[in-house]
Amino acid sequence: MEELSAAESDRTDDTGGAGAVPAEDAVIATRALTKRYRGGQLAVDGLDLTVPAGSVFGFLGPNGSGKTTTIRMLMGLIEPTSGTARVLGRPMPRATRAVLPQVGALIEGPALYGFLSGRDNLMRYDAADPTADPRTRRTRVADALDRVGLTAAAGKKAKAYSLGMKQRLGLAAALLQSRRLLVLDEPTNGLDPQGMREIRALVRELASDGTTVFLSSHLLDEIEQVCTHAAVMAQGRLVVQGAVADLAAGARGRLVVTTPDPGDAARVLKEQGVADLVVTETGVTAEPPDRELAELNAALVTAGVRVRGFGVERASLEDAFVALTGEGFDVAG
C-alpha cells in the first residue's frame, strides 16, 4: 500500500490538471494514478483527476478507456500500480473504512442475491456497513426502494427482476444512507427511456441536496444533459477535464446560413472574409468570424441572397470531444 509521506500530506496543490479547484474542495483528487493489470494491460495511465465538491461530474470515454478501472481504484477495490487517489480528502485504499460509508456506488452494473427479495438484498448490503444504524434499517430500505420506484416489486425475488429493475435496485443500494458522494458507473445501462429520465431527475435532485455525483458514461448527450463538469478518457489517459460549458465552448460552433441560393451566399461570405466555407444543399456553413454577425446578414440581404435562417449552432460535447481528440468515439484496440 502506498504510504503517504509527510511531505505529501502537506501538499495542497494536488489538484492535477484542472488547476481551478483548490484541493480541499475536491471530493476526488488523483495524482499520476496508474493501473497496470497483471496481464500487462495498462488500463489507467498517469491520471490527474479533480472532482469539485457539489458537481455532477461526467466521466466519459469509449469502451475500454479505463473508467471502471479508475472507479475500482477510487473505491479501494484494486490497488493502484502507482500514483495516489484521495476521496473525500482521505487516501484510498487506506481510508476505506472512514470514506466508504459516505459514498454510494454502482460499479459495473448491479450485483444481487437472486434468492433474496429486493428488500432483503438491501437489508443485507446495509448490514454490511458497520456505521448503518440497524434501528433505522427498515425505514431507510423502504425509502431507498421508494426513491427508485421499486416499492411494488420489493418482495419479489431478485432473480425475477428485469435488467432495468436490477439496475434500479443497485441504485437503491447506493442510496441507503445520505451520501456525500455518489459514484455511478453507467447508471442508465438497461433502463427504458422513462427510467433514464427518472435517473437523470434523481441525479439532479441529489445534486441539489449537495451530493457530489460522479457519473461514468459513454453516452455524450446523457453527460451533456445532467453534468456540470466532465472529464474525457481515451486509452487510459485523461484527454481533458473541466466545466461542461467551457468544454463545449472550446469547440467553436458553426455559422449556418439556410438559403435557396447557396452559391451566391458563399460568394458574398467569401467577399466578407469568412473562412472554411462549406456549401450544402440547404445553404452554407462556415467558421464564425470574430466580427458582428448582423453585418454579415445585412451584407447577404443587400446582395439579394434570400436568407431563410441565419445563426451560430452551439457546439455539442461530441463536437468538443472530436475536436479535442481529433478522432471518433471508438474503442482503441
Binding site: G76, T96, L100, P101, V103, I107, A128, D129
Partner: peptide
C-alpha cells in the same frame, strides 16, 4: 462470482471483518 463481493466491500464491510 455473483459480483456481490464488490458491493459488500464498498458498503464497506471491511476485508478482515468480512
Amino acid at each position: 462470482n455473483a459480483g456481490t463481493l464488490r458491493y459488500l466491500l464498498v458498503a464497506p464491510a471491511g476485508r478482515t471483518r468480512l
